[in-house]
Write a protein that binds this DNA or RNA. Structure first.
Lengths: 335, 335
DNA sequence: TCATTCGCGTGAAACGATTCATGAGTCAAT
DNA sequence: ATTGACTCATGAATCGTTTCACGCGAATGA
């Protein structure tokens, strides 16, 4: 593998000069620069990041560790993060913990060994030991889609209580009195908060609430939930799901069972992923600004790792969700 | 940042011994080992991969560079690749070129600088200059979801010609004579092959084929295609889409326009992503074994980079696609 | 003419691990 | 008592960069 010293020899200069050509071209005379550059070309020299990083002590890579890449919501976060990273000349590597704490731990220790610049983290469990050991590595991290106290870390999130309330209010206002909430695992703060939002609205109304908890936040769990809903009596006339994957699963289960949506059952999802609007009965959903979430988190992380003088203050950014009403809750468009 | 020499000092041994404790524990006596391990614990020592890699000359990371992470098909490939990588103690970093050649180039040069173990590549354009310069870096790569001549590189793909034929035959056999093929950009080999498959079947039948090309392989393009289809006369009674995202877009556009699926228009997608089966009118689709694709590609790459004696022969693995028939083409289930 | 500045280039010292030849110590066998 | 075999630990060399103090020569100013 050709290294900097091969280039130096070929160009008849010292290795220090080659390094300067690559990193501070203005410090080198035009003629030498040209000679070195053509040597680089001819030899096909590619700088070795590991050596560079060893010297520098920090890498040019930031990591994004998400709960589930199968959920387009997180893919959008990744895209946002990549956008700002690129502006800073950094790269993002995306890791998928698949909701599993052991994989989260494994990735975190890998990232610590890599000495990544920082980590954008959407953790399975905040209180977990996973983070506890990672903290000692001194690698900065920012929470994404999870609010934490500012003294612990910066975080960028969306107000899930409001989001839940938004959905619930919409259902109450459209006249539903028998409402179900299909929630994901309650170890997830997002799920707990959305439920809190739902309850705050429904408790103050005359509607009745049943809560179903699923083990995963995916389409298959949604289908399961659908069959449970079908067995309930009285059967709810509206269901709010903790995310769009669940909602799509419920929708499919209902359509398969001949239940008309929204006539017999209104459905509200959460995240407003692209597939929500693209469903044959387009889903009403609570939109989260996923891309902006990713951008903002990356910006915070970059600010924290800027080689400035003073440590930057931790920040807590909270975005507001927005209800997007579509056919799955509006009778007017049906049929 | 605590390094190996801090540990050595604390434990009262040489750095070589610490290294042995970490990498070849059996070569160290039990008592020293215990002493070193507790020093590691107390100091919170985390090995620095960049130094390790500098010495070793190769990294423990393999990369997967895909066309579009927004497409669940590629997420499944990533999962497959990660499964086998994990078995080998490797890590995968997933990069999303978003169908853009410039990002592909940028990622490839980053990966070359990182001296990754190898790259699983789903390239925008095989003939591209992107690859040409990457080749010089000597980093092994395996094509995923794209067949190439075995003398160039190993590849793992699915037979797209057969896949296209499968879909077309299904439509012909269910009696359609006016068929549309909504294809993605023809620079993609996948798209060209699927079209070839479609033509091979339809040319031999009495059905008529119209081909619409879209600029992207996403849901929005599918919606566009739907409106174009609506303007055609005679209007096709069946449409095959080059992937499920397009198909979902078409489905949505049609349902919004009041066209009944499958009664007035049958739709076939490609990839069989989870959302295809979860659509309110579940999509008939050509299934590709995405996870196995990822696994197989990673296995090939690992075989090529095994530090064995002889270079391993290049391999070309081709999987067979499979038609999954659902409601979007079968009148029997409708209403 | 001499001193000062400036522009360019050099060479060596890091960075933090791995690896390997070497040596120190112990034990058993001759 | 000497040898050989074996177990552990050592310390130096090495990987490919970056960085920095320094030196050389030319240009500038007095």
């Amino acid at each position: 593998m050709v290294g900097i010293k091969d280039v130096a020899r070929r160009a008849g200069v010292s290795i220090g000069t080659v390094s300067n050509v690559v990193n501070r071209p203005h410090m080198v005379s035009a003629s030498t620069r040209a000679r070195v550059l053509s040597a680089i070309q001819e030899l096909g020299y590619v700088r070795d990041e590991s050596a560079r990083q060893l010297r520098a002590g920090r890498s040019r890579i930031m990591a994004l560790l998400v709960l589930d890449l199968g959920n387009p919501f997180f893919v959008d976060i990744a895209r946002g993060a990549e956008e700002t990273a690129q502006d800073e000349g950094l790269h993002v590597i995306t890791c998928d913990s698949g909701h599993r704490a052991d994989r989260e731990v494994s990735y975190l220790s890998m990232l610590a060994e890599q000495r990544v610049r920082g980590v954008l983290l959407s953790p399975v469990d905040t209180s977990g030991a996973a983070l506890e050991t990672f903290r000692r590595s001194e690698i900065p991290y920012v929470f994404v889609d999870r609010r934490v106290p500012a003294d612990e870390a910066s975080s960028v999130s969306v107000d899930d209580v409001t989001g839940g309330a938004l959905a619930a209010r919409h259902l109450v206002e459209t006249g539903h009195t028998e409402v179900a909430f299909v929630n994901g695992p309650s170890i997830l703060a997002q799920c707990r908060d959305r439920e809190a939002g739902v309850r705050s609205v429904l408790d103050a109304s005359s509607a009745r609430l049943s809560v179903l908890e699923t083990s995963e936040l995916d389409v298959a769990s949604g289908r399961d939930a659908a069959s449970r809903l079908l067995g309930m009596s009285p059967r709810p006339t509206a269901v709010f799901c903790a995310n769009d994957l669940l909602a799509l699963g419920v929708l499919q289960g209902m359509v398969a069972a001949g239940v008309r949506v929204p006539d017999e059952l209104a459905i509200v999802g959460y995240d407003d992923i692209e597939f929500a609007g693209a469903a044959a009965v387009p889903l009403t959903s609570v939109r989260q600004p996923a891309r902006r979430l990713g951008r903002a988190a990356a910006e915070l992380l970059i600010a924290e790792t800027a080689d400035g003088d003073e440590p930057v203050a931790r920040q807590t950014v909270v975005f507001e969700p927005e209800l997007v009403v579509r056919a799955s809750t509006s009778l007017t468009r049906s049929h």
